[in-house]
């Protein structure tokens, strides 16, 4: 029985962690954005721009750190365009998010054309003398790259910010009722801008992870819908950070499951297995929305609505 083999099980768990991390990174950022009442559908575009800029940075300087910084900056720059349009000019958020994705997919192809086919050294993994060598759990707990640990720290940080700090409370208030928050004197648009830029940084980081650690190379369209799945994960998590971790790892698991099932030579069309994460997203969206009832009471009440302050 191959499944009982510990090294095989360890390999599966390791690959699940790797597949889940980009989803978790991108979804954490979007969670903060949506808690502030903004729906940025451009995650896919910010992510792919993060991926290509991170790869370009790492390839040109030979440094993973510079690459990561470039990826984050690219995500922030993309988010800034979104913020200018939706917050500065009160443009429809759904349409702007779509534009951001189309733009990002195109521009990343343009930038990445010169980098396709090149390889870099992947991001280094933690290697502690005794701990990493522990049987089974050693490699899982103490042998990851910085992105994986970073994603967990990020979620804890977001939880602490949203539920344990005053700005976090204000941010949630703005997301639930921007009119009242504005009347109380809270800076709705400034805080939202901050949240959107933070979301861009997270999406850029997620993209950087894809091209610096996950693969490590760049091909056009390599995000393959992960940005959209991250958006669905936020709904799955009912806009709560802790549930986001469960959701991201569940989806990472589905991705890996289909890869292993294809490898095991089961008599199922490979296309059906590849479609599994997308189908799972739909099933999960339906199930989660259904239990909450129509209109989704867990969603921030002002989500996706433009805000133009009265003067």
């Amino acid at each position: 029985m191959q499944w009982l083999d510990l090294t095989y099980l360890q390999a599966i768990i390791l690959s699940v962690i790797v597949a889940s991390t980009p989803l978790l990174l991108a979804a954490s950022g979007e969670l903060v954005v949506e808690r502030a009442g903004v729906l940025n559908l451009g995650v896919e575009g910010m992510m792919i721009m993060g991926a290509v800029c991170a790869f370009a940075g790492a390839e040109l300087t030979g440094s993973t750190l510079v690459g990561t910084a470039a990826g984050i900056l690219a995500g922030v720059a993309m988010a800034a365009i979104f913020a200018l349009l939706t917050l500065g000019l009160a443009v429809n958020q759904v349409a702007t998010g779509l534009a951001l994705t189309i733009f990002g997919l195109g521009l990343s192809g343009l930038i990445g054309a010169g980098f396709v086919g090149q390889r870099i050294t992947p991001a280094p993994q933690l290697d502690l003398p005794v701990l990493t060598d522990l049987p089974f759990i050693g490699k899982i707990l103490f042998g990851q790259d910085a992105f994986v640990y970073g994603s967990i720290v990020l979620v804890i940080g977001i939880w602490w910010f949203l539920y344990r700090t005053r700005p976090g409370l204000v941010l949630r208030a703005i997301g639930d009722n921007h009119g009242s928050a504005h009347a109380l004197g809270y800076p709705v648009l400034s805080l939202r801008t901050g949240a959107v830029l933070f979301g861009g940084a997270c999406a850029g980081l997620a993209g950087a992870y894809l091209s610096l650690a996950y693969t490590p190379f760049f091909i056009a369209g390599m995000t393959a819908g992960r940005g959209w799945i991250a958006l669905a994960l936020v709904v799955f998590a009912s806009w709560r950070p802790a549930r986001l971790v469960i959701g991201a790892y569940l989806f990472g698991g589905v991705t890996i499951l289909q890869l292993h099932a294809q490898g095991a030579g089961l008599d199922i069309p490979p296309q059906l297995m590849t479609a599994l994460p997308y189908l799972a997203t739909i099933v999960v969206l339906v199930a989660i929305s259904r239990t909450r009832g129509v209109a989704g009471s867990a969603a921030p009440a002002s989500l996706g609505l433009a805000f133009v302050p009265d003067r």
């Binding site: 669905a232 739909i282 259904r290 989704g296």
Partner: peptide
């Protein structure tokens, strides 16, 4: 029927 986001589906 279920209130799921038509955008994502």
């Amino acid at each position: 029927r279920f209130g799921a986001s038509e955008i994502l589906v």
